[in-house]
Design a protein around this nucleic acid. Structure first.
Lengths: 200, 200
DNA sequence: TCATTTCTGTATCGCTCGGTACGGAAAGAA
DNA sequence: TTCTTTCCGTACCGAGCGATACAGAAATGA
């Protein structure tokens, strides 16, 4: 459904440009990514960026949203697995793959984007933390269902287990950003899974 | 030993000033900490900072070195425990305490300082990654000794186990930076320890 | 064709960044 | 006291930052 509009049409693909912006933010973090870096990578000039996205922070939020939808689709797929153990294993394995894709920067945009409150008053860091927490809550809900179904031992704390899984995933992201290779991250997952109930 | 020198003596305590700088870098990251933030917190003005430390990056390296020596002393103490399990538990527990001290920023300077390569070409991120890796190697060496001593099961990969422990610690640092409380981080450690051989 | 609307490119804004030149102040040495 | 050395404070540098004003180009609708 292409909307008919008056005026000169945009000369670039906004989603494709957003994908380029994702990589720049991923590599350099929110603060470290300058508008020159961004617009050069996106193949547009500044006023076009401002017209299309508003400002740098809005561009970042849009980039993170697209990242969550595309690059983290594996997380939603993992939640659909039949057992809690499979959910967790599938998530951690796919996470390792995503952290070490050859065609993408190492690590995870949500972590590399910015952990500390930079020049702003932690606005961006809080936004990223909240988006990670949303994922943790989704996993906790799935694990709570597993407890109800008897798939996880009664007495298991689904929120704590979900937090543990996210902790491993974030730790792996930190390692990946430091250049640790895929096989080593999988070895970490091998060990991490020993702490998960319901291992086959 | 106070060295007698000619000329006007420095009007501030360089180590105390460094402690203030640590907090600023910790809260805002390397890039997010401006010279104005730093010198204001340190109670000195710019030329004094440049005379005493060289430049911003040198100040940061000195801050990280002091941080490693003081705020991470618990890591060296943990390595001295008699068994591998105690080493790991002691490290992860003390780490959680350090990540959530009321008189310090939440999280860990080594992580919050900067994960992504900012405006520089990843210089600072690489430096921090290398310093974390040094800690991981020290732990791996200690665990290798435990394997030799029969304290850990034969066939245990000490490097992989050390990497797992550091992964949990880094994941907890990410959570702490996001505001997760101390009890929750300890709950994560409870689960993480289940994957460690030699549990009492 | 021509008025209207929207996007593009240049050129620039005010501001903050990391870093410094320079003159005066404060100490020891003689 | 006077010389020498070092530190402190002001005031400033060029560069890069995020963000924009404005004029011309490119599309639609009448």
């Amino acid at each position: 459904m292409t909307v008919k509009t008056k005026g000169r049409p945009r000369g670039f693909d906004a989603d494709a440009a957003l994908d380029r912006a994702i990589e720049v933010f991923w590599r350099h973090g929110y603060e470290g990514a300058s508008l020159t870096d961004l617009t050069d990578a996106m193949g547009i000039n500044r006023p076009s960026m401002y017209a299309a996205y508003g400002n740098k922070e809005e561009l970042f939020r849009r980039a993170v949203a697209r990242y969550a939808e595309h690059d983290m689709a594996y997380a939603r797929e993992a939640l659909a697995r039949p057992t809690a153990y499979q959910v967790i294993e599938s998530f951690l394995r796919a996470n390792v793959e995503a952290l070490t894709r050859a065609d993408r920067p190492s690590g995870c945009l949500s972590i590399q984007g910015g952990l500390a409150g930079g020049s702003d008053h932690g606005e961006v860091a809080r936004f990223l933390a909240e988006s990670r927490l949303a994922g943790e809550r989704a996993l906790a809900a799935r694990l709570a269902r597993a407890v109800d179904e008897g798939d996880l031992p009664a007495g298991t704390d689904p929120a704590a287990l979900a937090r543990y899984v996210m902790t491993v995933s974030e730790g792996n992201a930190v390692h990946a950003a430091a250049g640790v290779d895929r096989a080593s991250l999988h070895a970490t997952v091998d060990i991490a899974l020993r702490a998960v109930p319901g291992r086959p």
